[in-house]
Every structure is written in structure tokens, then in C-alpha cells.
Amino acid sequence: MPHAIEYDRFGGPEVLEFREIPYAVAGPGQAVVEVRAAGVNPIEWKLRARLRPSGEITAPRRLGTDASGVITEVGSGVEAWSVGDEVIVVGARGAYASELAADASQLIPKPEALSFEQGAALGVPAGTAHQVLASLGVAEGDTLLWHGGAGAVGQAAIQFARRLGAEVVATASERNHAHLRELGAVPVVYGAGLADRVRAAAPQGVTVAVDGVGTDEAIEVSKQLVADPDRIGTIVRGAEADGFGIRYWSGGGPEPLTAAEQALRFEGVALAAELAARGEFVIEIAHRYPLADAAEAHRQSQTGHVRGKIVLIP
């Protein structure tokens, strides 16, 4: 029997249960994917802990949107995919599972050069980074300040921004500075005096900033350094963004992503997969856990000190 991670009540990681589930069935326009790896994203433990609203639980809930695997069945109307195709799944429901049914529109070909773990690590990080940079109009001549450069989204953002011709300053713990330099960013330590350290790192000035960590410091320093508030955004504190006078994308904000923003996210995953297959995009896997150990993966994610991506292996 296939298995999935489910929970019946809000709470800590201990509410996650490893359970047998019915076999997935491909409906019209869908494909069943045998999951080889699933990505863990912070939004998932925030939903589980009820730090983000999601309505009352009336039936067992599953987690996860990012996965990679092999198609084992295709439904009616699916012509672009065949049994045996290796795919990346983006925006699925219940990706913490050994198999799942996904819409054909949620699938991207997994390049042969990418591992299944790398494919599963791309969804939210690469999609978010690409969309946010596009929405902010990041281009050659810009200097981007990204708060939280060592996380999976931050690493993707640094690489995309550098490809666009922008300079990047990224905050991170000192132990992660060498890696961020390799990605093309100028790293700075967060904490007291951050604004002055950023000014020293970018004497030309900062033109655009993104809060990827959710701290007051990230918001305040961004507003100090960037003249145009329309070029400051957050992906963490969306619910408060209007009060700060900055932009937001998800992050608990009241407005969902637009269709154009969703399309940008999907585009970003496909682009990152293509670049990674050519050795032009780094995908760092921080931790690997068996699917049954999803609770431990959430505990690790909740520390806020993960460099790269956590993946689950069914």
C-alpha cells in the first residue's frame, strides 16, 4: 500500500502521522506519480502549527506541494505525458506521499542530469525567487538586498539576480558566507549595525530589497536603504505588508497570487531545472529524511537555520 503523512489536529511536529492511503487514481487531465522525493517548505509547518490560517480540520490533511518521481498512470485527455516519464511536480496537494495524482499542468520534465532530490527541491524556492524578482523588475544596474540568503529561496534568488545582471547583498550567518560568495553575493551578518554593513558592502546604494526572514530588522533596514517602497517586498509577513507600506507575495497576505504571478513561479522552476542540468544553477540539499520521519524534518525546518533544502524520501 502507498503511504502519506497526515494530521488530524493542529499542533507540533508530533501531530504528523505516517499512514497507509488508498492507491492514487488518475482522473481526467491527471497523472499518477510514484514519488521519489518530496520537498519540505516552511509554509507547511506553519500551516500544521496554525501559524497561517487554513480553516478547521474536518478530515485528515496532507502536506506538501513539491515532488519529483515517475509517472505510473495517465488519465484521459493527457497526451503530453506517458508512463515512465520522470517529472518534477509543482503545486501539488499532498506531496508528502509515496504516490500522488497531479494535474498534467503541474508537471515539468525532470532533466536526466538532475537527481530526484534536486528536482523535488526546486518548486517553492525557485518559483518564489523568480516571481519576486520579476515582480520587482530586478535588472542589470540594480543592487538587491536579500534578507535570508542561505535558505533555499535566498540561494535561488541570488543566482537568478546575478543572471539578470544585478549586484546582490545577502544577509546570513557568518558560517554561510563562503557559500554565498560562491553563488555571487556579497554576504553580511544580520543583527545590530546591519544598515551600516550593507552600506559598506554596497557603496553604490541599494535599489531593491526583499524580506525572506520575517524580522523587524529586515523590514526597517530595507526601508532605510531603498528609496522606492514599491521596490521593497516580503515573502514572510504579507499580513502586515500594507502597514509597512511595502509589497508582498503570499507570506500570509490577504490577496492570493495573481494568475500572472503563478505563471512566473512555474516558469522559474522550469528555468532552474534547465540551468541546473547544465551545471549553471546550484541546488543545495541540506538534509534528507525518510518519509516516515517527516516530524523530524519539520523540527529541523523550524530551527530557521537550514542552509538549502530539506527533502523527504518515500
Rank of each mutant, 00 (worst) to 15 (best):
E86I: 00
I88H: 03
V89R: 04
V90T: 13
A92E: 03
R93D: 14
G94L: 02
A95D: 05
A95H: 06
A95Y: 05
Y96D: 00
Y96F: 08
Y96G: 01
Y96R: 00
A97H: 05
A97D: 07
E99Y: 01
E99D: 07
L100W: 04
A101N: 10
A101M: 06
A102Y: 01
A102C: 13
A102N: 06
A102K: 01
A102F: 02
D103M: 11
A104D: 13
A104C: 04
S105I: 00
S105K: 14
Q106L: 03
Q106K: 04
L107S: 11
L107M: 08
L107A: 07
I108K: 01
P109I: 00
P109D: 01
K110H: 02
K110C: 02
K110L: 15
K110Y: 07
P111V: 04
P111A: 08
A113Y: 01
A113K: 15
L114D: 06
F116T: 00
E117S: 12
G119H: 09
G119R: 03
G119L: 07
G119F: 08
A120P: 06
A121P: 05
L122M: 14
L122H: 10
L122I: 11
G123L: 09
V124G: 01
V124Q: 03
P125K: 06
A126Q: 05
A129M: 11
A129E: 07
Q131S: 15
V132D: 01
L133M: 13
L133H: 04
A134V: 00
A134N: 15
S135T: 11
S135Q: 14
L136H: 10
G137D: 06
V138M: 03
A139P: 00
E140G: 14
E140F: 07
G141Q: 13
D142I: 03
D142S: 13
D142Q: 08
T143P: 10
L144A: 10
L144V: 14
L144W: 09
L144K: 09
L145S: 09
W146Q: 15
W146P: 00
W146F: 15
W146C: 00
W146V: 15
G148T: 11
G148N: 09
G148K: 04
A150F: 08
A150Q: 01
G151K: 04
G154R: 10
Q155L: 10
Q155S: 15
A157I: 02
A157V: 06
I158F: 11
I158L: 12
Q159H: 13
Q159L: 09
Q159W: 09
F160Y: 14
F160H: 12
A161W: 09
R162H: 11
R162I: 14
R163H: 13
R163K: 14
R163I: 02
L164Q: 14
G165I: 05
G165S: 10
G165C: 10
G165K: 08
G165P: 11
A166S: 12
A166K: 05
A166L: 05
A166E: 06
A166T: 09
E167D: 15
V168D: 06
V168H: 02
